[in-house]
Amino acid sequence: MRIHDDRPDAAGGYPDDRSHRDFRPEEHGWTTSPEDSTVGGGEPGTRQYAVTGELDYYDDEAYGGSGEGALRRDLDFYDEFPDSVEAARWHRGADFGLLMLRLALGFVFVAHGAQKLFGAFGGSGLDGTADMLATMGFRQTQVLAPLTGGTEFAAGILVALGLFTPLAAAGLLGVMANAVVLGADAGFFLDGGGIEYPAVLGAAALALLFTGPGRVAADKGRAWFRRPVLSASIGLLIAVAASAVVLLGMR
Rank of each mutant, 00 (worst) to 15 (best):
G156R: 06
F109Q: 13
A205Y: 05
G106R: 06
G65T: 12
G29V: 12
Q142G: 15
G183C: 10
L167F: 03
L247A: 13
G150R: 01
G65F: 14
R24F: 02
V229C: 01
A232I: 03
F121L: 13
L99D: 03
F138S: 11
R72S: 08
D127C: 01
L158Q: 06
D5G: 09
A242Q: 07
F96V: 15
R89G: 02
F109S: 06
R89L: 10
A94Y: 09
P25H: 09
V143F: 12
G64T: 14
V216I: 14
N178L: 07
S231E: 06
T38I: 14
Y197N: 08
A145Q: 00
V51K: 04
D127S: 15
Y58D: 14
T129K: 07
A207P: 02
A155E: 02
F189I: 14
L147C: 01
R215V: 03
L247K: 06
R18H: 03
G45L: 05
L105N: 10
H91W: 00
L105G: 06
N178S: 11
H20T: 05
L103S: 06
G122W: 02
L103V: 15
T141M: 03
P44T: 14
V143A: 13
G221L: 08
L248I: 07
L71E: 11
Q142N: 13
I234A: 12
G106C: 08
L103K: 02
T46P: 05
T32W: 08
A239K: 01
L161V: 07
F121H: 15
H112R: 09
L158D: 03
A10H: 08
G125V: 08
F210S: 01
T151Y: 00
W224V: 00
R251L: 09
Y58P: 00
L230C: 02
P15Y: 00
P8K: 09
L117M: 15
A114F: 12
L230F: 07
V175Y: 00
Q48N: 10
N178I: 15
P8D: 12
A62P: 01
R102D: 12
A199M: 15
M176Q: 14
Y197M: 10
V246C: 03
F164E: 02
A104I: 15
V180D: 04
G171D: 02
L190D: 13
D9A: 12
F225R: 01
L55G: 12
I3C: 06
R227V: 11
F107M: 10
A179W: 04
R7E: 13
G13M: 00
D60K: 05
E152P: 09
D79K: 08
R92V: 14
G187N: 07
F77H: 06
M136T: 10
A160H: 00
F153T: 04
R89Y: 09
A199V: 11
A160K: 00
V181Y: 11
S243I: 01
A223P: 10
G45N: 05
G193A: 05
T151M: 13
E35F: 07
I234Q: 01
R102W: 04
V159L: 04
A114R: 01
F118H: 09
Y14Q: 13
M100E: 08
H91Y: 00
G214T: 06
Y14V: 10
D56P: 02
G171W: 01
Y57F: 13
G214K: 01
G214I: 05
P228C: 11
A170H: 02
G212K: 00
L99H: 03
M1N: 04
R226P: 08
G40T: 05
